[in-house]
Write a protein that binds this DNA or RNA. Sequence first.
DNA 1: ACCTGAACACCGTTCAAGT
DNA 2: ACCTGAACACCGTTCAAGT
Lengths: 187, 187
Amino acid sequence: MPAPERTSLPQIVAAATALLEASGVEALTMQAVAAEVGVRAPSLYKRVRGRDALLALVAEGIARELGATLELAAGGAETGRRRLVALANAVREFARERPEAYSLLFARLPDAARPDPAVLAGSVAVVLRVAADAVGPERALDAARLLTAWVHGFVSMELADRFRMGDELDRAFAFGADRLADALGLE
Amino acid sequence: MPAPERTSLPQIVAAATALLEASGVEALTMQAVAAEVGVRAPSLYKRVRGRDALLALVAEGIARELGATLELAAGGAETGRRRLVALANAVREFARERPEAYSLLFARLPDAARPDPAVLAGSVAVVLRVAADAVGPERALDAARLLTAWVHGFVSMELADRFRMGDELDRAFAFGADRLADALGLE
DNA sequence: ACCTGAACACCGTTCAAGT
DNA sequence: ACCTGAACACCGTTCAAGT
């Protein structure tokens, strides 16, 4: 005798994402997710292999959202330099608005919790495209890496509160973006 | 009737650090630490407030070691530019040799697990000093932030295995360091 | 076919009881 | 004064039993 489906994978991933963003990754427990979707924890294992696999699905959703946000930001800028700065600002804004989500994206996690590399690659494709447009195809990869590493480093240190260097972070970020654009030879 | 002391705080912190580096932060459990020092888990609470406080002590020790490593690296270089490059390389080597330790240093943790800010500041002081020496006092802070953010971003993405861009990471790192030195106006 | 309670092996932490 | 077993409130996960 079949039993009715009381939830679904998308509903589970949505509930898990909401828990993550509201209360951090340690609040994303199987029991909390189950309660959120109106089911008991063991039932979740019908839709997802385990907590790590759920974390990976959550991370993939976040990566897609970040990618879409970056596409939007890049689309609104005219010159190559402005597009790079717009990307940097968009990443920082995303991380400040959704710190737990952003942190999950770059967290060191067990292999089972790794998001699909193809999804991650898709989200970063904008950066590579904009970089190619700004500095030319043969220097695009280096430029994208330099920019990405700096933005991520700045943002992750800001989130971890490791700067402890006063409140002029906005200015420091703008300074860094300008200097990097100079270093990449953008007009 | 007094009972003999079977362990000590330094021994506990050392055991915790060893567990972290060997098997990751999730292996650093109170029970595992206790077993390592020959005691039962509840006894640890005589020396440390809880697991988070222990994590903070571990992080402080690691921060001191990183600081000492950076001092050494900076001391061996002649020009300002070479000192900055030496610092960047030293951070990357430290992170590659002791990934779990490095990750803990910049991890987002509960407040109770935050290392003493003064200890962290002491470990980063080298970077600020070298930056001041290289680009002058008024641009030192910006330069230190730019360099630190880039190095940390590069290294943390390398550790998280998020680059997925082939194997030329050494070259990419050297490229980034050179470009940043250019951007900071170093000869 | 899905859902559940019960169970297992873990956690961190508290505390009364031992020495 | 320190150490311990037992206990409590959690985890993730498995599985036989229900419908």
